[in-house]
Amino acid sequence: MSYRYQRRYTGPLQAVIMDMAGTVLDFGSMAPVKALCRLFEEAGVPVSPAEARIPMGTHKRGHIHQILLMPRVSTAWEEVHGKVPDEDTLDSLYERFIPLQVEVIGQCSKLIPGAAEMIASMEQRGLKLGSNTGYNRVMTNAVLAEVKEQGYTPASVVCVDDVSQGRPLPEMCLKNMLDLKVGCVQACVKVDDSCVGIEEGLNAGMWTVGLAVSGNEVGLELDEWQALSTEEQDVLRIKASERLYQAGAHYVVDSIADLQNCLDDIERRLANGEAP
């Protein structure tokens, strides 16, 4: 035969699946960093915010594990505690981390500027909204209690406790999609501020939008970002955007407030028979 049939989805977008910290709330994704820095400081081995950010987006137990594996941290831990960190060390740190993270979440859960308006716009558009996160269920419930008071209640919320493996594997995204009763991955968009979250969306076969300014890649609180000159902001924006594009993001914008044009363009591409 000279031709082969190829099935393509050409309908509208059906769902948007968003990360939490740095994407919808907590400008700068500060809550995990503050809790991790405090955890390691209390353990006698301080880590810098930059070190704490490196594994951002992953399961928080795995996040702590990756910090412990950093040569500087591992060496410092052995000097302070007389042994290299092991599985018992990880278990103990994670147990201590959970209440610290819940406490900090209460201080860092304000919706990102423009998020409420964008969420309302997506709902008016008929899109189903899901959320997933590297937080465990206790932490996630703390976040949900905070954002509910601000008017955000996603129809599907998936955390690392709900799946066998977290990011960059696609299980959380796919569970969101199934919870939302969306039957086609091409009709879904994953929005995330971390490179591993973009990888998750790509591994799920979804469109992906990276957020360069509001989350982990720039890593500044809102007032710190606003205090920078336009030139300083541009330098940080460009570096962050490059990292997210290198991770495979289809689009990169500053924050969730800038999502509308991306959704419009994805629907145009879908109608033309394009796929992620």
Rank of each mutant, 00 (worst) to 15 (best):
Y5P: 09
Q6V: 15
A15F: 00
V16C: 04
G22P: 08
L36P: 03
R38D: 13
I64A: 02
M70G: 08
R72L: 08
W77K: 02
D88C: 08
T89W: 03
R96E: 09
E103P: 00
C108P: 00
S109P: 07
A116Y: 05
S121F: 10
L129Y: 00
S131R: 03
N132P: 02
N132C: 14
G134D: 11
M139H: 01
T140P: 07
N141I: 06
A142E: 05
A142D: 03
G151A: 07
G151L: 08
V163G: 10
M172Y: 03
N176G: 02
D179I: 00
D179S: 02
A187D: 02
C188G: 05
D193W: 04
V196K: 07
I198Y: 13
E200F: 11
M206A: 12
M206K: 10
T208P: 08
L211W: 06
A212M: 08
L228E: 00
T230G: 06
Q233E: 12
V235I: 15
A240G: 07
R243H: 15
L244V: 11
Y245N: 14
A249N: 11
Y251P: 12
V253K: 11
S255V: 02
I256R: 01
A257Y: 06
C262V: 11
E267D: 09
G273Y: 03
